[in-house]
Design a binder for these strands. Sequence first.
DNA 1: TAATATGTAACTACGTTGGTGACAGTCAAC
DNA 2: GTTGACTGTCACCAACGTAGTTACATATTA
Lengths: 132, 132
Amino acid sequence: MHVCTLLAAKADGPLTSDFIAGSVNTNPVVVRRLVGQLARAGLVRTELGAKGGVVLARPADRISLADILRAVEPGPLLALHASRPNPRCPVGRTIQDTLAPHFARGERALATALDAVTVADVMAECRAGAAH
Amino acid sequence: MHVCTLLAAKADGPLTSDFIAGSVNTNPVVVRRLVGQLARAGLVRTELGAKGGVVLARPADRISLADILRAVEPGPLLALHASRPNPRCPVGRTIQDTLAPHFARGERALATALDAVTVADVMAECRAGAAH
DNA sequence: TAATATGTAACTACGTTGGTGACAGTCAAC
DNA sequence: GTTGACTGTCACCAACGTAGTTACATATTA
């Protein structure tokens, strides 16, 4: 989100991973890894070579928090236990299949809430906050 | 959830961490650690000594998935980055405070969805699934 | 007192993540 | 065309969290 807000705020030309890393306070490579995920999800475009960098692939008001979450966290937030329970126990045999749809419904509720907020919204709120 | 469903299904007397570990397919100590969190949240009671074990502290239809998630995962699911962004950047300075309420709203939506499902519900669905 | 539980500390193993350096590939500007 | 400025990606390390395990103090029943 920090990266996308930055891209929206400084939309005149691409930003370099060095510049972004300076604002996020991390390493350029970490930013490039993150940007790679956003790019694969179609949220940003990267331009190689000199004067290159990252730009939003869509208007900021058409990228939601949910889009970014999906891009960056492909797996479920509510994960089932990695090792299978004991299939000889009536509960163990069925618990995973029983829980999965409930978890999925919860995640959909989360995604719906996050879908209501766009990068443009966050940028505007950031500007309002920075005015102080 | 597995632990709580088990406790609800076999509600006649306390279950030992050994028995629970057998169904979850893990180690008794891991179960006791988990149960400790559930107990601190007031969802289960533990009885020490011989013939001891774990029992639900409330009826199964008054324990929701959200209760258990809160007990087991005290921190937020949507966490802010650990290291602070650069305060000299307008976006970096404000992004965390701007994002926090949106994240909180998302988590509330998730909690609301998970609150609609109780341990009793899951147990019933497990029984139905095990019938096959 | 003996047997059976939990609570908890300590330790290991493992996977994940952030940070870092290095380097090949790509593009703009001179 | 050469130089310089970028990204993409690899390899590596350190830090961290977690599951599993052993061990032991403590509490309770019989």
